[in-house]
């Protein structure tokens, strides 16, 4: 027997949570663009959303947010931290995005944890949606998840005729489902799709071997360092912190930034540790496939969602890079230098 929620019952459950004060963040169509947004009513959720253009990291790690505000008064400085004390449901995460959240947890919750992220993360439940189809750029099974994988989620939904099979994937999820009132039904789950499988095993070692290869320079030739890959990526977490002054007050704002951005590593005196196009390019992929796994228990920092593949204006395709590293590494062609 499975627990079943009709489409209407699902929306009613979410609206009930919302009315109880829980923020519901879900895929919606914003001027035709699929994005995660806080929804005023559950019927605005795009339940058929495939992979959103920008990842759900927008909720846990907003494009910009205020860490604290200082106010100058009578020669004193009053510092107030910005806190989130509500609770939220991040709804409609496909398994790749659930893995994406986990891959943000790993660096941000590592001690000393990023306070703002930890606060939002602890107060957010993840409700996932298994994939009934995949896109050509999907490769989640190459990076430790799969189209119906409930790992890292609190609740998993699977689309069936007329509604969803719903399953708790954690205690938090079980508690969340208390108000859902699912029906008990004998249902069989659809066969999950099979995305492309890439040769990701041994990637850090291959990367190390090809670290100084001319490959990165050639790849960087066509890169315009537009930052889109980092901004749509569920696992890219580089950030900037700058002040936003207004009269007697100033906010310290934490915002997304990309390792590809001009000036990202340029010091006040002008020295730049990653000044060349090739060094910038290598950093993005070395972080995902070498530095991150070496620092955090061999995990690759990639969720296989394919967003960067779809969004790159010059077709820098992470799947092609994985395959190239394997090819060059195995045939040991050497530098391929230009």
């Amino acid at each position: 027997m499975s627990r079943f929620l009709s489409r209407e019952a699902l929306l009613a459950w979410l609206d009930g949570l919302r009315e109880g004060g829980t923020v519901v963040v879900a895929p919606t169509l914003v001027e035709g663009v699929s994005l995660y947004r806080q929804v005023p009513v559950a019927s605005e959720i795009d339940l058929d959303a495939s992979v959103t253009v920008v990842s759900p990291k927008e909720w846990l790690f907003p494009a910009s947010h205020t860490i604290f505000t200082v106010e100058r008064k009578d020669g004193r400085v009053d510092l107030r931290e910005n806190t989130f004390d509500g609770r939220a449901v991040l709804f409609g995460l496909h398994p790749c995005d659930a893995l994406g959240v986990h891959l943000m947890d790993v660096p941000f919750l590592a001690e000393p944890a990023d306070g703002s992220y930890r606060e939002r993360r602890e107060r957010t439940a993840l409700v996932g949606l298994s994939c009934i189809r995949c896109r050509p750029e999907c490769f989640c099974t190459s990076v430790d998840t799969s189209p119906d994988d409930p790992t890292h989620l609190d609740v998993m939904l699977t689309l069936v005729e007329g509604g969803y099979v719903v399953a708790a994937a954690s205690d938090k999820g079980e508690a969340l489902l208390a108000s859902a009132k699912p029906e008990e039904k004998a249902l069989s789950l659809p066969e999950p799709p099979a995305p492309e499988k890439l040769p990701t095993e041994d990637l850090p070692r291959l990367f190390r071997a090809l670290y100084d290869d001319g490959y990165w320079g050639r790849l960087a030739d066509r890169c315009i360092h537009c930052n889109i890959c980092s901004y749509v990526c569920p696992t890219c977490y580089c950030f900037d912190m700058r002040d936003y002054p207004r009269g007697n007050t100033a906010e310290r704002v934490q915002s997304w930034e990309s390792c590809q951005a001009p000036g990202f590593t340029r010091l006040a005196g002008g020295h730049d540790t990653r000044g060349s196009k090739a060094a910038k390019m290598r950093q993005r992929f070395a972080h995902k496939f070498l530095y991150f796994p070496e620092t955090f228990d061999s995990q690759l920092s990639c969720s296989g969602c394919g967003r960067c593949v779809r969004a790159c204006p010059v077709n820098i395709d992470i799947r092609e890079i994985i395959s190239d590293l394997k090819k060059i590494g195995v045939s040991s062609v050497g530098s391929g230098e230009k």
Binding site: I228, S230, W256
Partner: peptide
């Protein structure tokens, strides 16, 4: 909905 990636500038 601008995410301030500045891709418009880069291209």
């Amino acid at each position: 909905r601008c995410i301030r990636c500045h891709a418009c500038r880069q291209v």
